[in-house]
């Protein structure tokens, strides 16, 4: 059992949980995820490790309540436990000094983006972060992102905060303004697809972290498969990060709807 030691609401449907998992805290790096199960009978679902504290032996998860399992998990309180937490899984993010990095986060995608922003900054990059959401209330982790970014741009669909417009507009504005060496985008599949299409026009290397449906997270089932560069890849062991310009997003979006 993995005890919850801290809980915070980022917005009505987005919860941060700090969970005791000392072995995972010790091994994890930016980009890794865990598979979590709440309660006997619970489904195994993947969640990114947003942060970890080796000394306290904890990992931080940020969860958006969208369906059965995520609602169950978000309803858990301090002192209660997750039944299973397995990880760290997936390949860690490749962090390197490349120059200027634009980091785009949409929805809860901001949570997995944060450790990458941190690591990119620590590696000596200039980091410009773009947070996007439908409306002001849904922007999460603004302070933490600002702390590690050279510049923070906020985009909302309805203009209730920052600039009005989609994340792609924000990206394009930066690209037109200065030289960008790498774009990292994490968020809903549709958002990543359009960021990829935008940066493709400018031929700027772009990395995305894919959130496919998973079961085991260790390469055993193939539920997470996507087509990358014409070949089938398993997101849980080959990813979750891939070259955005090679991912077949339409197929991925179609597969995400399997159980809807």
């Amino acid at each position: 059992m993995f005890e919850i030691v801290e809980k915070e609401y980022f917005s009505e449907h987005v919860v941060k949980l700090v969970v005791k998992a000392p072995l995972i805290a010790r091994s994890r790096r930016a980009g890794h995820f865990v598979i979590v199960r709440a309660g006997e009978g619970g489904e195994r679902i993947p969640l990114t490790i947003a942060d970890a504290d080796i000394e306290r032996g904890t990992i931080t998860l940020v969860i958006q309540a969208i369906g059965v399992s995520t609602k169950k998990i978000c309803a858990l309180n301090v002192g209660e436990s997750l039944t299973d937490v397995v990880g760290p899984l997936g390949q860690a993010t490749h962090i390197e000094k490349v120059g200027t990095v634009v980091c785009c986060g949409g929805g809860v995608g901001v949570a997995p983006l944060l450790p990458i922003i941190k690591a990119m900054k620590e590696a000596g990059n200039k980091v410009i972060s773009i947070l996007a959401a439908r409306t002001a209330d849904l922007i999460i982790l603004e302070q933490q992102v600002a702390e590690y970014s050279d510049e923070l741009i906020i985009m909302t669909d309805d203009g209730s905060k920052g600039q009005k417009g989609l994340v792609t507009l924000g990206v394009e504005n930066v690209i037109n303004r200065e030289k960008v060496d790498l774009v990292v985008a994490i968020g809903p599949a549709v958002m990543m697809k359009f960021v990829a299409l935008t940066t493709k026009k400018y031929e700027i290397p772009t990395m995305v972290s894919l959130n496919t449906i998973m079961v085991d997270g260790t390469g055993m089932c193939g539920a997470c498969r996507v087509t990358v560069d014409g070949k089938t890849k398993f997101v849980c062991i080959d990813g979750p990060e891939f070259d955005a310009h090679k991912v077949d997003f339409d197929e991925m979006i179609m597969r995400l709807k399997a159980y809807n």
Partner: peptide, 21 residues
Amino acid sequence: GLPRFMGIPGENFVGIMSSNE
């Protein structure tokens, strides 16, 4: 534990899965 697929067109459509899954 690693399931094989055949690599034929359309194998990633929804409703096609490994026996492991």
